[in-house]
Nucleic acid binder design. Sequence first.
DNA 1: GTCTATAGAGAGATAGAC
DNA 2: GTCTATCTCTCTATAGAC
Lengths: 215, 215
Amino acid sequence: MSQAEAASGPSRSERTRSSILQEAERLFAERGFEATRLEDVAEAVGIRRASIVYYFRDKRELYDMVLGSVFGGFHARLESALGGTAPLPHRVEAAVSAWVEYVGERPALARLLLREVAGAPERGPALLDHIQPFVDLVRGFIAKLEPHETEALSPVEPAHFASTIAGATVFFVAAMPALLPDRGDPLKPEQLEAHRREMLGIARRLLGVRRTNTG
Amino acid sequence: MSQAEAASGPSRSERTRSSILQEAERLFAERGFEATRLEDVAEAVGIRRASIVYYFRDKRELYDMVLGSVFGGFHARLESALGGTAPLPHRVEAAVSAWVEYVGERPALARLLLREVAGAPERGPALLDHIQPFVDLVRGFIAKLEPHETEALSPVEPAHFASTIAGATVFFVAAMPALLPDRGDPLKPEQLEAHRREMLGIARRLLGVRRTNTG
DNA sequence: GTCTATAGAGAGATAGAC
DNA sequence: GTCTATCTCTCTATAGAC
C-alpha cells in the first residue's frame, strides 16, 4: 500500500485484485482447478474475463496466488503457536487448536488441500512449494527442543502426527455436509469446537500425555 | 460370466472392458475427472479412444462405474467385519482394520475419495449414491446393537468416528508421498501396519476402550 | 469390436479499442 | 483498467468403414 492509499484505503486496482483472489479461492476450492472457468470467476467478481488476465498472467498464476494466500495465512499462526516457552505438549496443543480454528475461518483451505493432496506426487510439484515452509517450521521447532522434550515426542513420528490431525480435520469439514447433509454444518461453532476437542484428545494420546478435560 | 466363459475364461470383450476400468481407475485417481483425457485411458489400455465409448456411453458413465467398483469392493468387507457375534469393540476394530487394509490394496480409493469429498455438496450428488450403502450399513449395525452396547458407543458420534478414521487414512496414504517424498512409500507393509495400529489406538480411545497392545 | 475421420462445443489467451 | 472481438487448441462425442 502506498502512502496515499494508507489514507484513502485500497485503490480500485487493489480492490479488484483482491476480489478476484477471493472469488477464485472459493471457486477453485469448490470445483477444482480444471473445472473452474475464468468466466465464472469474472462473473462472480462482476467483471469480464479479459480483466482477470490484466492482474494475473494466466489461470495457473491465479491459482498459485490463491494457494499462497490460503497457506501463507496459516504460517504465521502456526509459528506463533509453536513459539514461546510453554511446555512442549502445550505448544503442540496450541498448534492443533490454531489449525482447527484457521480451517474454520477459511474452509476453502480444507477443499484445496484435499484436492492438492489427491494429485499424484509426480504431477504438479505446486503443493510442495506451499507446504515446504511448514515442514521447515516444524523441523526447526523439533531441532530446538531440549533433549528431554525430544524424548517425549518419541511415541509418534511428527509426520504421522501432522498427517493424522490435518487429514481428520479437512476431511471432517469437507465430508460432513456431503455425506450426511442432515447433520448440520460442521463449521458451526459448536461442531467445530467439538471437533477441536477431539483432535486435542488424539494429539494428547499420540504424544503420550495423560488425558485432561479441555484445551 | 456365461457358462462357456466359465470354462474358457473371460471373453475378449470382458478383458477389454476390465482393462478400461482398471486404467480409468488409476488415471481418474491420479488426475481427477476433468483432467483425465479419454485419450490417455485408451492409450494406457492400448486401444483407440472411440472404442471406450463402445463399452461406456460417455466419460461420466465410465467414472461412475469406477466409483462403483472401488466403493463396492469395500462394502462386502465392511459388512463381514461388522457382522458376527464378537463384542462390539472387536467388531469395530475389525472394521477399522478392514478399511486400512482395503485402502492399502486399492490406493486409488484414497485419491478418489479425497477428490469427491472436496467437491462442494451441491455439485454432483454422485458421491452420495456410492456412500449411502455404507451409511445404511452402519445405521443398521447400530440399530441391531444391544442396549448396553449402544451405551458403550456414547462417547463419540458414529459419523465423527468414521470421518476421523477415514480422513486420517486417506490423507496419510495420499499426502505422505507428496509432502515428504524422502519418507518412503506409505503403502509399504510396515508403514501401513504402523498406520493401522495407530488408527486402532485412536478407535479405542474414541470408543472409550482401555488400551491394549496390538490389533 | 475396433478403427479413422470429423463434427461441434468450450475455454484460455491475445490484440487492440475506449 | 476494463472492455469487445477473435484466434487457436483441446477434448468429447458421433458417423460410418472394416
